[in-house]
Amino acid sequence: MNFALNRRLFLQASTVAGGGFMLGFALPGNEAEAAAAPEVNAWIVIQPDDTVIVRVAHSEMGQGAFTALPMMVAEELNADWAKVKPEFINPTEHVQRNRVWGGTATVGSRAVRTSHEYLRKAGASAREMLIAAAAQQWKVPASEVRAEKSVLTHTPTGRTLSYGKVASAASRMPAPKDVALKPHTEWTILGTPKSRVEIPDKVMGKPVFAIDVRLPDMLFAAIEHSPAFGGKLKSFDEKAVAKMPGVRAVVALADSAVAVVADSYFEASRA
């Protein structure tokens, strides 16, 4: 298996292309740097400063996926929730990596109920890999190492290492074949109220939506579709609007819609 090698090559390639995106939102000009640290597994990247990046494969539209899904990973990872940052997956990478992040369609109230098992297992598996890496570094049995709140502790001696210090070594550890998941009575993150991570940006009116994208030389288009379902475009009189301020073009889209392209949406929509 050379998956690990391929994965690293891929990450290098996707880092160049701007592979991953942090919350804070990736409109042009404020793209966060793609994570430089290696993946512990596909869901988790732990940076040297202990930031735990958790990949999110479902859309955020106010239903809380960006918080709830990382909570499930962080619970089993025994991560310090304050250091967890969600990051939206790159769908191109998702397809190229054989849909490594599972289902992405955010429909049918399904984000949590279809992914809870593999997300929690990803967290538990990474936790075991972190423990194994710390045990190797200390040359002690893994059973003497515990993981709590993003810190690994060698129980007999009290020595500690933060997750960020061993994440790179952990990424080279074999993933455990099977991991046990905690019973709900042992949860410390799941089931507790966590503030939704994107709310501070939203109350500032930050450009987190597609409609807020502004690019150099960008034009705007207004669309009119056939007023009846199944209707077809017969003709339009481009000359009637061609001289209106800001109007750049009138374009037929297939045979059922017309677009007016202009310098601003107002100029496109009134033409």
């Binding site: 009119e224 056939s226 007023p227 009846a228 379902f229 199944g230 209707g231 077809k232 475009l233 017969k234 003709s235 339009f236 009189d237 481009e238 009637a240 609007v241 009138v250 017309v258 007016v260 009134r270 033409a271």
Partner: peptide, 9 residues
């Protein structure tokens, strides 16, 4: 407004 003629289908 752009004059458009549609065949309503």
């Amino acid at each position: 407004m752009l004059p458009i003629e549609w065949d309503r289908g």
